[in-house]
Amino acid sequence: MNKIIFTFSCLLMMIFSLLSLSVGAVSISIPDLWYSLLQKDTSFSFIVWEYRLPRVVISILSGFGLAVSGVILQSLVRNPLASPDVIGLTKGAGFFAALVIFLFPSSPSYVLPAAALTGAFLVFILLLLLSKRLTLSPDAFALVGIAIGAVFQSGIQYLLVKYPADINMTLLWLSGSLWGRGWSEVFSLLPWILILLPVAWWQYPKLNVFQLGDEYSQTLGLDIIRQRFWLLLLSVSLAGVSVASVGSIGFIGLIAPHIARKLVGGRHQLLIPLAAIIGANLMLIGDSIGRIIIVPREVPVGIMTAIIGAPYFVYLLRREHKRKG
């Protein structure tokens, strides 16, 4: 069964990637696409090689990053509703990004992602400080995260009202957009994901134990606080690098792990890869639809994923809720 699920979702990812390469303001037929991919010198070369392909790669990489970050957080907090968005990571990143857009509008283009990453790690430090170096219960930890997120959110809104001239640029970044992302973003994201993803998967035994509860972890001889620290750092890094390159897309980190858990259960050795693939799929399909829905403009991928994911998410949770009575 699991094999089928994995094959199917990988297949889906391939189909969505091809779809994402072929649709857009300029639609490219599959034969033309093949030709452009192989020959590299057709009238579609630029669109395929320089525009859509990096977008596809970034979709996949950031989908991986956000989804796995969500899986880790949900296990840490022992709550399926946790996500990088909810505990404030994306809001911290967003606040710093907005600061750059508003206060240093002419700064070179690498400053924005750097600021976003700084924001995410600042939230991490705040989380550490305010949760007494993670000695609080997972519940308290989640609440502290929500509170930090709410504070940063007000900060963002203050900036938006204060500087009305640049609102659009900021909102586009905040909602998460793949517009204009090219190979340079791919190469700044790729090494991180390549390193962090295997590291995350390697943690699966700990994550399995963690979601059972502290008592179990202790009896199994885990140094909880220390493990929490490393796992949180891992989660923050994954979300941080993804957010830095695509903007604060929150929903993927919540819903991808959820769908994956529904399919393969709570064993992290399966959950992590499947959630990653589902995250990538959501990003791909969200981006493809966002590109063709109101040509020549684009709907930011973050909003598209929210629209697509929301109904399914509500359905999932309702069912869960009913089952629990």
Binding site: N79, V86, I303
Partner: peptide, 29 residues
């Protein structure tokens, strides 16, 4: 905690839709 997490998730979802609408109507932003 479940209530708070669900609430904040819905909050973010709804506000991202609001932001989306605002972006799409950029001249009355």
């Amino acid at each position: 905690v479940r209530l708070a997490l669900a609430g904040i998730a819905v909050h973010f979802l709804l506000s991202s839709l609001t932001e989306g609408l605002i972006i799409m109507n950029q001249h009355s932003t």
